[in-house]
Design a protein around this nucleic acid. Structure first.
Lengths: 186, 186
DNA sequence: TCCTTATGTAAACACTCGTTTACTTACGTC
DNA sequence: GACGTAAGTAAACGAGTGTTTACATAAGGA
């Protein structure tokens, strides 16, 4: 006989996780303002009121979703001798993962969500990067990294030019790689 | 006797201009979504219904306000031998003018406003820059310019770090200048 | 088996916002 | 000076939103 693990039809932890997962998808796709609580809970298959009960409201849900999507190790676990090539590959090629960048850019319209974004970006990305870079100009290095990264994603996300859709143009990609490599080499 | 120019208390052109000016201020300050029609018309001192009558709605008003704020000559009228220093000075130091960048970033949350932003950015900035750069890699140069510019403004606007508030840190500024200069020199 | 509690749902609430409609008023013209 | 039209206003409309409240029900121990 096949033993199936009996799952209770009501599980708060699982419901909470389903809402958080759906929130990452919808927030990244529609942005904070246009993403409705009803959209998120419909994707999760639960009732809209559970957002308030489990997360304390839409804004807190956004904070939890963005926090879960941010992982500084995606950058700081790369070898510094090949940092440029590898970080560009990670930024430009991986589409399977929910990127936190669209979520961030499209939350810029809401002042409260923008404040949360700024805080998480500083604590979860900027500070770890600064420590990882090290040295007396670590802060400037981290700033340069943020500028190039934000510029790349803003360009891709907000300026959908036909000639730059799809894969990144080779010489542009080479320039980006050298930019990132120069940050760790300086 | 002092001759005062008699102004009629009702002037459609003046009212239209007042709404457009107020819209630039409010949109840049609050973003598209959080900027209410009532906020804009209150600043202009007119009735909210005039937005629909004179501009055809809030979205069309945003398009007109952004279009009026975009001026490619602010970049293409600079001498190429000192382009880096001068463009950074223009970006970092001028606070008196209504910058279109906050307007653009804080409209990213609304899908329709984002589409308008993308189109205007391409037609009014990217294309003129590409022509101005010239040569066979003009498109890549224009793309690099957009990335560095967007990165700088996104960093300043969305990541209000205490250590980088106020004037740009000198070595960071020098790096930005060399980045822009390299685009025209390559 | 009963009963308490956690889990989930449905519906209404309260509020905001862009827009439209009906009305008022000042200006230019005959 | 009366009148028609353009300019402006006030108020309500209608749709959408996050959240709360009241109620239903499955789970698990006594």
């Amino acid at each position: 006989m096949t033993t199936t693990i009996e799952q209770p039809s009501r599980d708060a932890d699982r419901t909470r996780a389903a809402i958080l997962f759906a929130a990452q998808q919808i927030f990244a796709e529609k942005g904070f303002a246009e993403a409705g609580v009803r959209d998120i809970t419909a994707l999760a298959g639960v009732n809209p009121s559970l957002v308030s009960r489990y997360f304390g409201g839409k804004l807190k849900l956004f904070e939890a979703a963005l926090d879960a999507a941010l992982d500084p190790r995606l950058m700081t676990n790369l070898p510094k001798e090949n940092f440029g090539k590898l970080i560009v590959a990670r930024f430009a090629d991986e589409d399977d993962r929910v990127s936190p960048l669209p979520m961030m850019f499209r939350a810029a319209g809401d002042s409260e969500a923008r404040a949360i974004t700024a805080r998480l970006l500083r604590d979860r990305v900027f500070e770890p990067l600064q420590i990882w870079f090290g040295g007396d100009i670590a802060a400037v290095k981290a700033a340069r990294f943020m500028m190039v990264s934000l510029g790349f994603f803003a360009y891709r996300d907000q300026l959908p030019l036909a000639e730059f859709a799809g894969p990144v143009e080779p010489s542009l990609r080479a320039w980006l790689e050298s930019e990132f490599q120069a940050i760790v080499d300086d």
